[in-house]
């Protein structure tokens, strides 16, 4: 079945999943596509609001210039930093090869 241009496509779902590093099965692609289409359909209501002269709110509070002085504080004990690592090698975190 051809997908209408304006609606979220399976390809876009795959692209988004890849961006988010989420493994996804072919069945899930279709399921998420349909669910996200439905959600996005409801979200279209956003455009009902006239925001042409409205600034965006990225930070809810009026606080500004919140900074700390450049002072050292104790780091974690080495073992505390590493104890949750699923894979490690001595005092390093160990990860799979970067290259495919």
């Amino acid at each position: 079945m051809p997908e209408p241009e304006s609606e979220l496509s399976s390809r876009q779902v795959e692209h988004v999943a890849r961006l988010a590093r989420l493994g996804i099965t072919p069945e899930e692609v279709l399921r998420y596509r349909d669910q996200l289409r439905n959600i996005l359909h409801h979200i279209e209501a956003l455009n009902r609001a006239d925001t042409s002269k409205v600034p965006a709110t990225a930070h809810p509070l009026e606080e500004r210039n919140i900074m700390r002085e450049d002072r050292r504080e104790p780091s974690l004990p080495a073992e505390a930093a590493l104890r949750n690592a699923p894979s490690r090698d001595d005092s390093y975190f160990k990860v799979k090869a970067i290259q495919e």
Partner: peptide
């Protein structure tokens, strides 16, 4: 087989359906 595959598998198996749905929606 590599770090990207590992990320995808870990996040596929580690997150539940609603979390994945919202991650996709937010990423989009």
């Amino acid at each position: 087989r590599n770090i990207i595959e590992e990320y995808m598998l870990t996040r596929q198996q580690g997150f539940g359906a609603e979390v994945k749905r919202r991650i996709m929606l937010g990423t989009y």
